[in-house]
Design a protein around this nucleic acid. Sequence first.
DNA 1: TCTGGGGTCCTAGGACCC
DNA 2: TCTGGGGTCCTAGGACCC
Length: 442
Amino acid sequence: MERRIALVDVNNFYVSCERVFRPDLEGRPIVVLSNNDGCVVARSAEVKALGVPMGLPWFQMKDLVREHQILAFSSNYTLYGDLSSRVMAVLGQFAPDQEIYSIDESFLDFTPQPQLDLTATGQAIRHRVKQWVGVPVSVGIGSTTTLPKLANHIAKKQPGWNGVCDLGTLTRKNIDDLLARIEVREVWGVGRKTAMKLAAQGIVTVADLKTADPRRIGERYSVVMERTVRELRGESCIDLEEDAPPRQQIIASRSFGAPVWTEAELAESLRAYKGRAAEKLRHQHSVAGRVGIWLETNRHGLQDAQYHPSATLPLPAPSDDTAKLTQAAIAALRQIYKDGFRYTKAGVMLLELGDRGVEQGQLFGEHLNAGDPARTALMDTLDRVNAKWGKGTLGISSAELQQPRRWAMKHGTMTPAYTTRWSELAIVSEGVKAYKKASAMT
DNA sequence: TCTGGGGTCCTAGGACCC
DNA sequence: TCTGGGGTCCTAGGACCC
């Protein structure tokens, strides 16, 4: 039976989230910035029209900002995460099977409902998400996992589709004509490097790639690319995953707000990052067998002496205890830290993740903290407090409370946690005030 | 100076995604 | 002066073994 897969995604997701509580921003050029207000991670249509590329460093667009009165917002992941779950919940009402693919994208599987008019359903989805959550979405439909991504692209970029494109309603020739007008770079799995290699081979449009020999492509590129070509031809190779498998690794890293020189400050940042990573670990009920850390100097400033060390250490026994994980991270830092470098970023990794409760017992030495109810209760309290009062409220080590935290992240223009804190709930009459304040910040 | 072949496992790095 | 963060998968190459 022919599959019928829809891909729904939110247009300019972070920008659209900011607009939900600031309708005065509709039609104005706005961007959302990465952590540390470093570079552009989301652009409104007005900003895209100005030719601002994704990832442009914020300081490089100051002239453009002045000239076009572009408004900028620090990223507010609490808000985006909350609106994302609301969108996903609404989408889940429309189809029996759903794969949440990213913070702003979801696949819906309509294969079990072959009679359903999917163009009409797509419009119903758009209407309901806009009305219930307040953000605009686009819908693409096709017979494999790769095709709805392209259909979605068509729905967004080519006029006349009104935000919904179902390839299932088109003739083969129709589809091929559409694909001949899309650059191969738009295909899921074709990145910058592969696109360049393909271009050298004369494969420029999606239609070119579709007509290439999958086996040859597989030999020259990879098995992944071969599957992609087959999917373009309508042969289903990539399944949807309804139950997200637990993560195989957990990372927490940050660029520093200001460069850091000392081991003590690096250790302090690693403690904070490890606390966050361990929280994620406990959230998915896993334990880690190995801990890794890395340091970075400024890769962009080549006048700086460069040093990018990393180290990983095994734990005596798999654990989810912040204190034990942190201890290993600090030991790893001791191994690689060198004096005299201007460090700009650090990160921690949790590796060799396993299910809590099924790991091998240790014959000698330490047992897992899961056997220690007091320890487990402490970790649980830690997670609850931080969930309620904000990240970093409660930590394992007093070192986290040292001041000033020069390494701490910059976020100059963050909007309130409108939906997750009573104290920051939007107040209608305050809208004008907020508007003026944000305008002044550019 | 000459210097096998095949298999497995692990790691680092690349490419990609959002 | 100021350039994000968190993931996955695949491949090549080295170490090691027989």
